[in-house]
Each structure stands twice: as structure tokens, then as C-alpha cells.
Design a protein around this nucleic acid. Structure first.
Lengths: 110, 110
DNA sequence: AATAATTCTGACCGTTTGGTAAGTACCACA
DNA sequence: TGTGGTACTTACCAAACGGTCAGAATTATT
């Protein structure tokens, strides 16, 4: 049920589920957003927080998320470099999705 | 926040977000579950409802979902064949996730 | 002079994924 | 006899994905 009463049609290319999956459907995307969560986090910290992801892929994902305005990035021009990431207003709105993933896992998976 | 008060650690291999993504993170998985939704649906009907997916991939996904007990399958031994799919009790519990994807799309994507 | 620290970048390459398209099985029906 | 309908199955191939690993940049520290 949608707010305006129209049904959602997956068969429509503009289906909101499809569009959201296009944005958040990457292998690591929601995990990264969930990990950043409600805080400011440095690159290295984030990398350590998500073992298994490679640097290349993490950077790629972060760039993608910054491009799509789910994450904001602040570089301090210091040596050694310091870069901080945090969720934007829109990015924060993905957290309920990650929460649902978490609660599904907790309640239904071993 | 978890019910038992422990924090969720993405760094843990058993992180419920990771586990759920392992199950539902496929390109088409949540779209299929959302499309089946609260009904009994035949294979051909489902195929038509999700344009863009190939038969091969749809069958693969359905087999995967049946194996993982998110979807149940009933074959009628008729000619031409008739096969019906529907969400299991656990499968139904994925719908809130798809709902969140839908509402995120509606509220944040054009 | 060498090392450490941090955030990336890029080349290489194997694996996975996914699409296309043709084929299979079986019976009803024209 | 042959065409249609339904649910797959398989072979082939191309593209996307993802991992490893080395390197670059720059300054403080030893």
C-alpha cells in the first residue's frame, strides 16, 4: 500500500523497490551504511570495522555513496591524511532498512 | 540496539546484517519476494510480472529461495505443467524489508 | 636515510554472474 | 500431423565484480 493509494508495480521500470535496489543493492552497500551509522568515522577506522572488504572496493563504494549523496566526505589537508565520512540526511534514512535486515537476521537466521 | 542489549558488530562474521545480506542480497531476490508477496503465483505469471529478468535467473533464484525455505513450491502433475509458488512463514517476514525499500524509494528517489 | 602513518590508485587477473537462445517434455486440440 | 502452452534446462559467451598487491604522496620521527 502506498500513501497515495496506488499499488507499486515491480513491472514498472520506475518501481521504487527497483530504484532503491539500484542504489543500495551492492554487495557491501548497506553494510557500510549501517556501519557508519550515526557517527563520523575515518576511512581506516571504517576499514577495520568491516573485515573482509578490500581497500579498493571500500573506496569504490564510498565514492559511489558520496556521488549519490548518501555519504558526505571531509578531507583535512594534513599529513598523514585524515578523511572523515558520515551519513547525509538521505543516508540516515537508509538506516531503517539496515535495521530491518538486522532484525530479520536475529529472528530468523541462526 | 538489540533486544538483549548487545550491540551488533558488523565486524563479526555472524553479524545479522551480513547473514541477511547473504540470503537476500542477490540482485533480484528481494524484488521477487516482494512481487510474490501475499499470494500464490504461477511461474509464468511471476515471469511476466518482473520484466527484465531472464528465465534462467528466475528459476535459479526460485530454486535458491525454495532451498532456503523462504518460498514453497507446489507442482501439479498436469500437462501443460502448472507450478505455484508462495512465501513461507519465514518468507513473509522479508516483506517488511521490501516495504522499507519501497518507502525509501518513494520518499527519496525521483 | 630509512621508516611509519594514512588514504587512496591502478594494473592484473580469476571468478562469478548473467544474458541469449535453443532445446526438452508432454498432452490437448485443430 | 503439427501447433501451442507451460515450466524448465543447458551450452555458450561476454561483462561485471572483486581480490591481491604494489605504489604514490607527504611529513614527522628515529
Amino acid at each position: 500500500m502506498k500513501k497515495n493509494g496506488e499499488k507499486i508495480r515491480v513491472s514498472d521500470e520506475n518501481c521504487p523497490v527497483r530504484k532503491t535496489l539500484g542504489l543500495l543493492g551492492g554487495k557491501w552497500t548497506l553494510l557500510i551504511l549501517f556501519q557508519i551509522n550515526n557517527r563520523v568515522i575515518r576511512y581506516g577506522e571504517l576499514k577495520r570495522a568491516i573485515p573482509g572488504i578490500s581497500e579498493k572496493v571500500l573506496i569504490q563504494e564510498l565514492n559511489f555513496l558520496v556521488e549519490n549523496k548518501l555519504v558526505s566526505k571531509k578531507s583535512y589537508h594534513e599529513i598523514p591524511p585524515r578523511v572523515e565520512y558520515q551519513l547525509t540526511k538521505i543516508g540516515l534514512r537508509t538506516l531503517p532498512i539496515a535495521d530491518k535486515l538486522a532484525s530479520f537476521g536475529l529472528e530468523n537466521l541462526v
